Simulated scan of single mutants.
Amino acid sequence: MRIAGIAFLLAACQAAPAPQSSTASTLGAEPVNYGYTVAATYPHDRRAFTQGLFFLDGHLFESTGHVGQSTIRRVNVEDGRVVQSVPIPPGMFGEGIVNWGDQIISITWQDGIGFRWDRESLRQTGTWRYPGEGWGLTQNGTDIIMSDGTAELRFLDPETLRERRRLTVMANGQPVTQLNELEWVNGEIFANVWMTPRIARIDPQSGNVTGWIDLSGLVRDNGDNQDAVLNGIAYDQQRDRLFVTGKYWPRLYEIDLVQPGQPAR
């Protein structure tokens, strides 16, 4: 990803102690606007209504939505091939996913039911419940972090999946609603904001949006219908690669972020 930001604190895909952040001073700070360059482009299943995305052990893991079409998948990055796929239980609308140990944890949109899956076999191993809606998931090594379409992020105990606390996300003194797919990247929470071309960079201590990543160019290249919105962030910590895609997009992008004042796409 190669960009100056909050110092590296924790790998997104491994369980480790929570970061000890000193970023409380970001509260109320003006967000910085970032551009991007495309480092690589890969095929992506344009039939996938992408809800959740993460990278681990050389593969992308992706969840897709819509009742009767919702799946959990293992995907080959280079050619976009779905190498393994299982449906979520019938009648439910799948949403975000996150890895925890040898599990994948998933949520549904309005059913208040989540699932545990064996990460190797993708076999369902358990269920859990939560109030309200489920949108996106990520983790920081200590907590599972969940969005629900509001400006609040829920921090859950990974073992019991009970709620520990909430964090309100703010930018310029105003709450940022419609937080959707999430990814933990170098000590920050990256969040798609539904129906916009922007990703918010969120300080996990203060809840302040420290930066906006504007991917309008990618949305224009792929948004051939109103449902084809930006949604899907994955980070490869070992190789410092940031991936983004969207619902029904035929492409997955590896992007590098660009500081203000530098050339960008």
Rank of each mutant, 00 (worst) to 15 (best):
F54H: 08
G68D: 13
Q103I: 04
H59T: 10
P158V: 05
V83L: 13
Q110I: 12
W135G: 15
D79F: 07
T108E: 00
E152R: 15
T64A: 07
L156T: 14
G68Y: 06
T71Y: 04
E163W: 07
S70D: 12
F155P: 15
R154Y: 13
G58D: 08
P158Q: 04
G134R: 03
D57G: 03
L122G: 01
L60M: 09
M92D: 01
G132F: 05
V83H: 11
D57S: 04
Q124H: 02
L53T: 03
R154A: 15
P89W: 00
W128A: 07
E163Q: 15
G58A: 06
R73M: 06
F54P: 09
L156E: 13
R162L: 14
G65F: 05
R162T: 14
V77C: 11
G91K: 07
L122W: 00
R162A: 15
G101T: 09
T108M: 00
W109K: 02
E159G: 14
P90R: 03
D148Q: 14
F155S: 14
M92I: 02
L122Q: 01
Y130I: 00
R129Y: 01
N99S: 10
L60Y: 03
M92S: 03
E62T: 10
G96E: 06
D111T: 11
D118E: 12
G91R: 07
G91Q: 08
Q69M: 10
D102N: 14
W109C: 03
D79K: 09
A151E: 15
T64S: 11
I113C: 06
P89Y: 00
S106F: 01
W128T: 09
G96R: 03
Q84H: 10
S121T: 15
E133M: 08
P87K: 00
F55G: 08
D148R: 06
T108A: 00
L53D: 03
F93W: 11
S70L: 09
V86Q: 09
E152T: 14
G112S: 09
R119P: 11
W135I: 15
L153V: 11
D157F: 06
F155H: 15
I104C: 07
R129W: 00
T71E: 13
W109T: 03
D102S: 12
R154K: 15
D118V: 06
I88F: 00
D102Y: 07
L161T: 15
S85Q: 13
E120A: 08
T150N: 13
G91V: 08
V75Y: 01
E120Q: 07
T138M: 04
R73Y: 02
G114P: 10
G149L: 12
S106M: 05
Q124W: 00
E120I: 04
F54D: 10
F93K: 11
Q103T: 06
Q103Y: 02
Q124K: 02
S106L: 04
V86R: 05
R129S: 08
T127H: 05
M146G: 12
A151V: 14
P89N: 03
E62Y: 04
D157T: 12
D102V: 11
S106H: 02
T108D: 01
P131H: 05
L137E: 12
R81T: 12
T125L: 01
